[in-house]
Design a protein around this nucleic acid. Structure first.
Length: 478
RNA sequence: UCCUAAGUAGCUCAGCUGGUUAGAGCAUCUGACUGUUAAUCAGAGGGUCCCUGGUUCGAGCCCAGGCUUGGGAGCCA
């Protein structure tokens, strides 16, 4: 194929008069003369100018919104307003026709719901071009951050046999014939005859395996798909999502918080630097959308200001107990405006409480630590008070919990006690306990929901719009 | 899973108290125009009113059940 010029480069090229070739998809075709062409290399289109009087009608008719073309012509300074350069076409080839009557996308604004139903085509829109470019850059920044710090990227298994992590409902993995399932003498499904010789699931977390890596390599992280079979229907849950889970040996909760805050700030800064156009586009999109809202509901900061604010301020760090005191004394609690009134210590915080702390009280990201052990996982390190564990949740405005983590319990006897109390079977996790028998050490880690990060940075509001092909209850299309 | 709102043309939506042949803008098609920026002007075509029952002389509209979607909650990252 002929070498093509990328539109991104041509738009800033001032070598007028040179012959160039571009290939892309037609966004609009105006006036029988002007084609707005996109090749995905940037958000902007390049304008192609056709000498329509000397082109066959049959060819012009085939230039429709969505079709793909190859154009060779001269790069020139534009006569019209709105763009600096354009291409005077000398030769046009239709690479792929696009029936205008059937193509769902029109040169107009579409609802996100409609585009979600057409997820195979939504990449063609400006909004999703921006979202998925930012997603890419954030993913790259995560690797860059950890690599610079000497972390080892560890691939933890996607298929796991341990059902003991308690992180949520799991998807079963099996090759058994549903119409003829092998049974044991007592009538239960006999997984001994299944592919792995035991019941297997898709992973809900790579943490336990990452701990194994950290206790030898020192600092590791995972970045992979994670599956939760919960019937959750919200704007911040997916059945299949990507999670980043660093695990660090010889680290306590303080180190863990520092690492998490550094990571978030690094990748947000990276996105601002690398995706200025994309963030700018999404910022304006949000401003446009907010014009329809009453003044009181509009954001105080635009998208870029919000991200910058996050970089410029330290995250507010406080304990669960301190948060409860603030909430107890808060106006919405006193006036009974909360759906769940805070009247004592020990209850889990509801979304409305987290939102109050982040969006009303502190007005910045918050790290809550030292939760009651009853509402947290078995592997979190117990404090001396016997009541709380060294957990941390990082709460972001509009997102809620973006990171959940803890210092891990490295003391074998205390860990076993806790597992007994919570009915966690020890035999299945013998390998996890072995870590505490053979050279145990303090260590800590956390899980960062990648899509929630992308939500925050793009300013999108539904998590289904920041992953190319969302998986959620009743939907596995594409 | 719970609460709540919605489902009408390709898209976004209107449709009165239940009453003739279900409308608009955009898109599409045809023609005109041709340096446009979501081009403009004129005309045309386009409907399983989400599905299944029910009430009624008559249902897009009322009732019951179901499906799907949006928003909120729970669960969580």
């Amino acid at each position: 194929m002929i070498k093509r010029n990328k539109i991104k480069n041509l738009l800033v090229d001032s070598e007028y008069g040179k012959k160039v070739t571009v290939m892309g998809w037609v966004k609009t075709f105006r006036n029988n003369r002007f084609v707005a062409l996109s090749d995905g290399s940037c958000m902007q289109n390049i304008q192609i100018v056709l000498d329509y009087e000397n082109l066959p009608d049959a060819l012009l008719k085939r230039i429709t919104t969505g079709c793909s073309i190859s154009v060779t012509g001269l790069l020139v300074q534009s006569i019209g307003k709105g763009q600096n350069v354009e291409i005077n076409a000398e030769n046009i080839e239709i690479l792929g026709d696009c029936d205008a009557e059937k193509f769902p996308l029109q040169p107009k604004k579409h609802s996100l719901e409609f585009l979600r139903e057409n997820a195979h085509l939504r990449f063609r829109t400006n909004t999703f071009n921006a979202v998925f470019k930012i997603r890419h850059v954030l993913g790259f920044a995560v690797h860059d951050f950890f690599n610079k710090r000497g972390f080892v990227y560890m691939h933890t298994p996607i298929v796991t046999a341990s059902d003991a992590e308690g992180a949520g409902e799991m998807f079963k993995v099996t090759t058994l014939d549903f119409d003829n399932t092998p049974r044991t003498d007592t009538g239960e499904v006999n997984f001994k005859e299944d592919f792995f010789g035991r019941a297997a699931n898709l992973t809900v977390s790579g943490q336990l395996e990452a701990e194994l890596g950290a206790m030898a390599l020192g600092e590791v992280y995972t970045f992979g798909p994670t599956f939760r079979a919960e019937n959750s229907n919200t704007t911040r849950h997916l059945a299949e999502f990507w999670m980043i889970e660093p695990e660090v040996a010889f680290a306590d909760l303080e180190d863990n918080m520092n690492l998490a805050e550094d990571l978030l700030k690094y990748v947000i800064q990276y996105a601002i630097t690398q995706c200025g156009d994309e963030i700018d586009f999404l910022k304006n999109r949000l401003l446009e959308e907010e014009k329809n809202k009453p003044q009181a509901e509009r954001s105080e900061l635009d998208l870029l200001q919000k991200l910058q604010f996050c970089l410029d301020n330290n995250f507010e760090r406080l304990t669960y107990t301190e948060a409860i005191d603030i909430l107890k004394a808060s106006k919405p609690n006193q006036k009974k405006q909360f759906k769940y009134i805070i009247d004592g210590w020990g209850a889990d915080l509801q979304s409305e409480h987290e939102r109050f702390l982040v969006e009303k009280h502190f007005k910045k990201p918050v790290i809550l630590t030292d939760y009651p052990k009853e509402i947290k996982s078995f592997y979190m390190r117990q404090n001396e008070d016997g009541k709380t564990v060294r957990a941390m949740d990082i709460l972001f405005p509009g997102i809620g919990e973006i990171i959940g983590g803890s210092q891990r319990e490295e003391r074998l006897d205390i860990l076993i006690n806790r597992m007994n109390e919570m009915n966690i079977p020890q035999d299945e996790l013998y390998w996890y306990l072995d870590l505490r028998k053979f050279g145990t050490a303090p260590h800590a880690g956390f899980g960062l929901g990648f899509e929630r990060l992308v939500l925050f940075v793009t300013g999108m509001t539904n998590i289904r719009d920041v992953i190319p092909f969302p998986r959620f209850p009743k939907n596995a299309e594409f």
